[in-house]
């Protein structure tokens, strides 16, 4: 009897070791030298739409902060050369293994500064921690509005002046609008994606790092113009290019 149990036990143990070891080898991260990247730029074709000004008189603190430079909506932010800011680029197809499951350790920061969200769009990976901080001497509330059917749970939290950062993460890929109800003009986005991502800077340029070699579909998301996709192939240690152009409405 005793020996039979021992046999079963050793069989179970060796199976566990085998599976575990196999998983380790297969899932091992391709080393950094082998990873490539995707770069490019996002441009707006046509004249950028007029962005409405914001009347912040409701809160004297905000009004004062914008006394000389009135705030504007940030639905479409285009640079002088047509570069589109706040576009999120991510790999929507073709990722596998650890590139898909790894969660970056960097903690992106979403700041409430002069009653405006900085940045206007914050991209992040599923499960990646991000921080909401306030630089203002007036109270804000952060009220993201995800679709609960995705598994993301809505929340709503005040951040009075001097309050510690709010640290959170999201469970599912989703484009989540976030707003401050105290300052109804404050609207921003949490773009939660699976895998590596990048956001365009003020010139419209971006770089997605840590892309293992392979063929991918890259998606660009802009809050007003929606999404565009492109196929791109990344060679080991090389940089692939994908440029996007959105047409102004």
């Amino acid at each position: 009897m005793k020996s039979r149990y021992r046999r079963i036990l050793s069989a179970v143990l060796s199976t566990v070791v085998l599976i575990g070891g196999g998983a380790l080898i297969l899932g091992q991260r391709v080393n950094a030298a082998g990873e490539g990247k995707i770069t490019g730029s996002v441009k707006l074709n046509g004249a950028a739409p007029h962005m409405k000004g914001i009347d912040m008189s409701k809160d004297p603190y905000c009004a004062k902060a914008h006394a000389t430079d009135p705030g504007h909506l940030e639905t479409v932010v285009a640079g002088a050369n047509g570069g589109l800011e706040n576009v999120v680029l991510y790999i929507s197809d073709g990722l596998s293994g650890s590139a898909l499951t790894d969660v970056p350790t960097a903690v992106p920061v979403f700041d409430q500064k002069n009653c405006v969200y900085t940045p206007h769009v914050l991209a992040m990976d599923i499960g990646q921690k991000f921080k909401v901080v306030t630089s203002d001497q007036t109270a804000h509330n952060i009220h993201p509005n995800p679709n609960p059917m995705t598994g993301n749970i809505p929340w709503n939290q005040s951040q009075p002046p001097g309050a510690p950062p709010v640290e959170k993460s999201w469970k599912a890929a989703e484009v989540i609008p976030v707003q401050c109800n105290i300052h109804p003009w404050m609207h921003g986005w949490f773009v939660v994606v699976k895998g590596p991502y990048a956001t365009t800077d003020s010139s419209g340029a971006y770089t997605i790092n840590n892309v293992p070699p392979g063929s991918y579909t890259v998606t660009a998301w802009q809050e007003e113009y929606g999404t565009q996709t492109q196929k791109v192939t990344v060679a080991g240690g090389q940089s692939a290019t994908a440029d996007f152009t959105f047409k102004a409405k």
Partner: peptide, 25 residues
């Protein structure tokens, strides 16, 4: 004293009283 931290209150509610300071909600 709106910004006064009440030590230990964060144990009752981490999001309601971060650092012991009571949030509006």
């Amino acid at each position: 004293w709106t910004n006064l931290a009440i030590p230990g209150l964060q144990l009752l509610s981490k999001s309601g009283a971060p650092g012991g300071i009571i949030t509006p909600e």
